[in-house]
Design a protein around this nucleic acid. Structure first.
Lengths: 111, 111
DNA sequence: ACACGGCTTCACCAGTTCTTCACCAGCTCG
DNA sequence: CGAGCTGGTGAAGAACTGGTGAAGCCGTGT
C-alpha cells in the first residue's frame, strides 16, 4: 500500500485508533496485527463509516480488475479481519453484512 | 549522518543510552559498537518508538532514493544491529518485525 | 601488495500470508 | 416448506517475505 500524505492522518473511531501510515489498527491500545491486505480492506471500509460498500467495489479497490461471479476473496478477507478485531476487542462488532449487497463498517457494542 | 543540534540530545530508553552526537548506543553502560550505517538505522527507529516504520521509508532515510523490490539491504542491516544489541544486552529485544510492512522499535525484556 | 573492516549482494531456508476449494448455515422467494 | 442462492468457515497448497550465513567488493591503512 502506498503511503500518501492524505492517508497519514490518524483516525479515531469508537475504541479504535487507525494509523494509515503504519498500516496499524489499535483497539483500546492493543495492536490488531492485520496483514497488509487485511488492513487495506479494513481501511477502505473504515473510510466510509456507515456506508454499505458493494462487494465488487471492495474487490476492485484491493485487487484491481473486476470481480468474477462467485469469487470469495472478499468474504474470506472479511472473516480474517473480523477474527483479528474480535481478539483485541471482544464485545465489539465492526463489519456488518448486508446480504446480497456487501459490507458496512460501523463500530457497535454487542455484549 | 549529519549531526544536527536537534539530534544532540541524549535519549534514555529502557536500559539504553543513545548519544546522537557521538553516534553511540550504550546498553547498561556497555557500548554497542554500532557502525555509522547501523547507528542511522537504529536511531531512525528509536526516534519513533512504538511506531511501525515501513521498509521503503527506512531505505530512503538511510540510502536515499527509492527502494527496489526485493532489495534486502534493510533486512541485513537490521540483523546486524540486532546482533550487536544482543551482545551488550542479552535478554532484551528492541526491533520487532511487522511482516510485510517494516520494523518497530520497542525495548522489551524477553528472558 | 596485503590485511582489515565495513558495506552490499547472493542463495538458501523458515515462517507467514494469500488463494482457492469444499462444505455448511442462513436468507429469500415462490 | 423447499429449492436455490449467498455468505461463513476451516483447511491445504501455492506464493511470498524475512532470517541468516557467507562471499565479493571497496576504500583505507600498513
Amino acid at each position: 500500500m502506498t503511503v500518501s500524505p492524505a492517508r497519514q492522518r490518524i483516525l479515531q473511531i469508537a475504541n479504535l485508533e487507525v494509523r494509515p501510515g503504519e498500516l496499524q489498527v489499535l483497539a483500546d491500545g492493543k495492536r490488531a496485527g492485520l496483514t497488509v491486505r487485511e488492513f487495506e480492506l479494513f481501511f477502505m471500509l473504515a473510510e466510509r463509516v456507515d456506508s454499505v460498500v458493494q462487494r465488487p467495489q471492495i474487490y476492485t479497490a484491493i485487487w484491481g480488475g473486476t470481480m468474477q461471479r462467485r469469487d470469495r476473496s472478499v468474504d474470506v478477507l472479511v472473516r480474517k479481519v473480523r477474527a483479528k478485531l474480535e481478539l483485541v476487542a471482544p464485545g465489539w462488532t465492526y463489519i456488518h453484512t448486508h446480504f446480497g449487497i456487501g459490507y458496512r463498517f460501523s463500530p457497535e457494542r454487542v455484549t
